[in-house]
């Protein structure tokens, strides 16, 4: 069953901070989720291959040609970021 430690672990892996209260609330919900999906254990899947995708394999590969039309101007590349400098994305005084 899912524990507080499990929640901390997945929160760490998915880069989400959680307060103690968040963890408590999440625990409840995730335990519920686990219970709900437990029914899958009843399905007989002996010899069944996983279904990774419902579409057929790719019809064609992309030809190795530069697509100038799709390349963005640098202004467009940087338009949505909070900090930029000399055409780079910028992070302030990162300590790691």
């Amino acid at each position: 069953m899912i524990s507080k430690e499990d929640i901390k672990k997945v929160a760490d892996l998915s880069m989400i901070n959680l307060s103690e209260q968040d963890i408590k609330c999440m625990e409840e919900k995730l335990v519920e989720s686990i219970q709900r999906v437990e029914i899958l254990g009843q399905a007989n899947t002996d010899g069944v291959e996983p279904l990774l995708q419902v579409h057929e394999p790719i019809e064609e590969f992309r030809k190795d040609l530069v697509e100038v039309d799709y390349i963005l101007d640098r202004e467009e590349v940087l338009v949505n970021t909070k900090e930029q400098q000399y055409g780079y994305f910028k992070l302030l005084n990162i300590m790691d």
Binding site: V10, V37, L40, G41, A43, T45
Partner: peptide, 18 residues
């Protein structure tokens, strides 16, 4: 997670095929 993948994710992929 490594420890859960088979039980949940991979099982679900098989059920998806069913």
């Amino acid at each position: 997670l490594n420890e859960n993948k088979k039980e949940y994710y991979e099982k679900a992929l098989k059920v998806r095929r069913l």
